[in-house]
Nucleic acid binder design. Structure first.
Lengths: 112, 112
DNA sequence: TTGACATACATAGCCGTGTTAGGCATAATA
DNA sequence: TATTATGCCTAACACGGCTATGTATGTCAA
């Protein structure tokens, strides 16, 4: 179980990074993150949807309703240019904190 | 500048890990973290003191007033047994999230 | 002496955000 | 037909960081 603080801190960078691989919709993003984390990160819909709305309002994402193969309406999100650029900043912040923890834990720092 | 979300998520593991190296007091912890992060993590007192109080209330820390060489009264914190044990859990959570991000960023995962 | 500054702790109000809980709707499955 | 999985959304609540402020002491220079 991941703490709500960590959930909150990782939501934005994770959404941005997932969408960097191509557009996706809310419900699917939750599954993708769960799989990527090997069932360790279990997002709730009540957490993700407001995050997506906020990020769209901030201009990081763009949404569009589409009807997929299933015939069901889905709200797909993709990165805006601003969103694509912001990944680097999110990444830098994360690495900065991670490397500080890594020092205290006797781990090797992350480059790149 | 680190986002408030990341600040919040990293506060507890950072405090625990700093105190794992020996007891310390609030004002000093802020400096320690700033140095360790190479000036990238700049905690405010209004953020840290409530964190320390909470962690003590949770039984993770134990405090004691001491008079150091400077003749000034300081409130030193050290890990309780519970606090020492909790580091591993905090670490596991952090690594879980980090490795998920690392996958998306094409980085090598952290092993322990 | 006096003023400025770093040290050192603490709290109050504002605001953002995850959680819990609930609602609504459709397609697939039993 | 009933249930489950899918798929979106929002409201009330509680928690916690930020800003601002208050208090107090030691150091150093004018």
């Amino acid at each position: 179980m991941i703490s709500k603080e960590l959930i909150g801190a990782s939501a934005k960078p994770l959404v941005l990074s997932v969408l960097a691989q191509g557009e996706d919709y809310g419900y699917s993003i939750i599954q993708r993150v769960r799989q990527l984390s090997e069932d360790q990160i279990e997002w709730t819909e009540g957490m993700l949807y407001p995050v997506l709305h906020r990020m769209e309002k901030e201009g990081l994402l763009v949404s569009s309703w589409q009807v997929g193969d299933s015939g069901r309406k889905r709200k797909y999100y993709r990165l805006s240019k601003t969103g694509a650029k912001s990944i680097a900043r999110e990444q830098a912040q994360w690495i900065a904190v991670h490397n500080t923890l890594a020092k205290l834990w006797g781990m090797k720092p992350c480059t790149t």
